[in-house]
Simulated assay, not measured.
Amino acid sequence: MLPTMLQRLYTASDLLDGFNPFDELGFTLTRDFEVFRQFVSDGGPVPSSLETRLEQARHDATIADALKRFLKVGRPLVGFMGGHTAKRNSPAFADIAKLAWSVAQDGYLIVTGGGPGVMEAAHVGVAFSRNGMDDLERALAKLAATPDYGNLDDLFENDGSLKKSKRKDVMAARDWLAAALDVRSAAPSTLPVRLAIPTWLYGAEPTMPFATHYAKYYQNSLREEALVNNSRAGIIYGRGGGGTLREIFQDVERNYYAKDAENFTPMIFFDRGAYWLRSAVYESGKVTSYGLKLDEAVAEILKFGICSRLSPDEAALRQFLDKMAFTDDVSVIKDVLARHLGVAKRNMSFALAGESFRIPTLRMNRA
């Protein structure tokens, strides 16, 4: 087990202790990977014994309590959600990093799911947010030289040992992590506070080291709830797949039951390639142009939920839907977030004071 008995969130040093950039298998020597290997051995998302289930539940409860205490920093949280497959040398990665750099200038605390891709990009942006954009550009250029970490699916033999066929991929993960640590060392020594909420369900992915605090859970369901519910200032969605879609529709559910426009949490779909505004193109069963068109579907679902409960006039309905944006305009994004800032701070203060009944979004009527 990792040191949750310290009653705090993890740091990158906790998770990456044991990493050896000079060992071909150096990525697998971290304490983080050791816990992941044991997690798989114990049954993964379906623990093999009641004892293991209880031990994991105790760990996750300790993390949840540490997270609540951490959030007493009082800064509004903006979530950056998106896929783990965005390569470091892609425009999507750089765009998210630059957007996070800009959003951080307004004092928001950035939270992600703690993985690679879009999640890492957001943390890189915030890590350099006290520097000029030139420093961020140099960091992105260095990371782009190690764009991905190989294919880390199906790593283990039945006895828990690494498959020999995965050695090349494990070496790629080592190089990916070494490059991240090198770039992190160039960031300001006192880093802006940033939160990552990862899970050992996806523990094969190497831990990106750019966050200052990690609330790492065993159970992904608890992790997803922590991500979506604590992003009270709004959520920005970069391009992603199944995991991102789950988060989007958790957020849709929360806003579907919003009591009024004030408590509708901003949903911002960001991608300069219009990923969320166009459908994918296929040839012979293969995707030749990527996209997940959600603008009309999400708006229609939310309109249905709002109108079926509240019967607003057109002006009132527009107040809800104006807090949802499909855009790559940074000024529009910052304006949407700013309009919700007061409500986000108020509801966070209620949550931290244990006054949950005063938070309208927690009293959802599922009739």
Rank of each mutant, 00 (worst) to 15 (best):
Q105A: 14
T207H: 01
A66C: 10
T52E: 13
F19Y: 03
N263G: 10
A104C: 07
V298A: 02
Y214T: 01
V336E: 07
P91F: 06
V35D: 04
T265N: 12
T207Y: 00
G117R: 08
S13Y: 05
D65M: 07
D295N: 06
M348T: 09
K142H: 09
A94G: 10
L77Q: 05
A122K: 12
D295L: 05
S349D: 12
L15P: 03
M133I: 15
A187I: 11
R223C: 03
K72P: 02
A367W: 07
P206G: 02
V343L: 01
M5H: 05
G43L: 13
V103N: 02
P266Y: 04
V336D: 08
Q56W: 12
S41W: 01
A57P: 02
E157T: 06
G114C: 11
N151Q: 09
F36R: 07
D295R: 09
P45D: 04
D65T: 13
F22P: 00
A353P: 08
L292V: 14
G240K: 05
P360S: 14
F264Q: 09
S349W: 00
G241H: 10
G83C: 09
Y257M: 11
F19C: 00
T190M: 02
A66S: 15
L294R: 06
E262C: 04
F249P: 13
L6Q: 09
F33P: 02
K293T: 01
I301H: 06
T112Q: 03
I248H: 01
Y218G: 04
L195H: 07
E55D: 15
G107W: 00
K334W: 00
V332Q: 15
L6G: 00
A344E: 07
I333L: 02
E355H: 08
Y202W: 13
A316T: 15
L341K: 11
K303M: 11
E247M: 07
S289M: 07
D95G: 03
E296K: 08
A233M: 05
Y149K: 01
H213C: 01
E157V: 03
R184G: 12
K68C: 12
R246E: 15
M364N: 11
L2F: 00
P360L: 11
Y290L: 05
A351D: 14
N255P: 13
K68H: 15
A104M: 08
L15M: 07
A12G: 14
L352I: 08
L99F: 06
K166P: 12
I110N: 02
P21N: 02
T361W: 09
I63K: 01
A274N: 08
D32I: 00
G115T: 10
S331H: 08
G305I: 04
K334E: 13
K323S: 07
I248K: 02
R239P: 12
